[in-house]
Design a protein around this nucleic acid. Structure first.
Lengths: 189, 189
DNA sequence: CTATATGATGGCAGCGACTGACATCAGGTA
DNA sequence: TACCTGATGTCAGTCGCTGCCATCATATAG
């Protein structure tokens, strides 16, 4: 075997998730993760900006997917419907890697630092979706509001999905939550 | 002067904000902050869990205020109206310390770590508001959705408030944004 | 086939955030 | 006066993270 086994980045991601599951995020040092992947600590930080980032490598792909999904929604769709459709599509993708997603989410939920990182990724997602809506001609603050509301719906739906025992379909939960949001905001005043 | 000057915590908060404004969050070390407050580095970490937390000391007070404001909303108020009223009241309080708020927000906006911490504080706020709504008899997921939607409105309104040159009233911006959220979510489907 | 350029990696020193353990001091109390 | 309690100081040590330079594998030029 040569000095450079292929897919160093992927090996680091898998080694990290393994160690985080085995003994928790804080108890696993970067040096250990790198060693398990057959690499040096210094190399870890060449692939990931910091220790948390190793769990969020897929965020960029997900964001690009969501943005393109918003862009290709029917021209007649309202902003909120475009966001709904995009999130349901992304949820369907996610659900196929259900086991990985649940394991990863358990690690994140057990650690505040990771929760913070997740929130800022979701905020970036909201900003990207708002941008996609503006490119559809939606003006602010409607674009930002639709995007943030969509992310709120996604957060709540995802929490219900991981917490519930059986495997209900995530897209369905998202659709329901959008409906409930409509009822909640339709109030008086 | 005695060994223990009063209000060590407050001195640390002020020294930290000063240094962050002067040369940025990352360039200011905890040791420097403590020295400017006339204390040792170790004492800083007895008052604040970590370096970021020194900027978020008021979050707990704000959360208690919001929860009680939701609790004392008229019994007939819808969930979203209760959240609206609470946020407008909190915004009025905040606006009185407008100069401090803007300075603090500038520091936070310039640093990603601080932005992350702010987001998790807002998420905690949303959870607390949802709890207050449940105590009013609102069931989930309506309670969570109303709370998250409210926080989304707050985020967007606050951003507009700090970015705009003149000093428009923050409560008014929040009220407007709730109205726009209603229009956005009222879409078809 | 050899020399060289390029990119990925390793090793090391060092800074700053954070923590545990122990000593010290001010103020109150028996 | 002796003691107790809480806030602070000091010190050593771990870990995340970075800059710097050496090293190795592969590709390409010659």
């Amino acid at each position: 075997m040569g000095r450079w086994e292929p897919d160093a980045r992927g090996r680091l991601e898998r080694a990290a998730l393994e160690l985080f599951v085995e003994r928790g995020y804080e108890q696993a040092t970067v040096t250990e993760i790198a060693r398990r992947a057959g690499l040096a600590q210094r190399t870890f930080f060449r692939h990931f900006a910091d220790k948390r980032e190793v769990l969020f490598a897929g965020a960029r792909t997900q964001q690009e997917y969501l943005v393109s999904a918003v862009a290709r929604a029917p021209e007649a769709a309202t902003p909120i419907d475009a966001v709904d459709a995009a999130l349901e599509a992304a949820a369907a993708e996610l659900q196929e890697r259900g086991e990985y997603a649940r394991q990863r989410q358990a690690v994140i939920a057990a650690n505040q630092e990771l929760h913070e990182r997740e929130l800022i990724k979701l905020a970036a997602l909201a900003a990207a979706i708002a941008g996609a809506l503006r490119r559809r001609g939606v003006t602010d603050p409607a674009a930002s509001l639709a995007a943030e509301a969509g992310i709120a719906v996604y957060k709540i739906s995802f929490e219900r999905w991981v917490s519930e025992p059986g495997p209900p379909d995530l897209p369905g939960l998202i659709r329901e939550s959008f409906g409930e949001l409509r009822e909640v905001t339709a109030g008086t005043a």
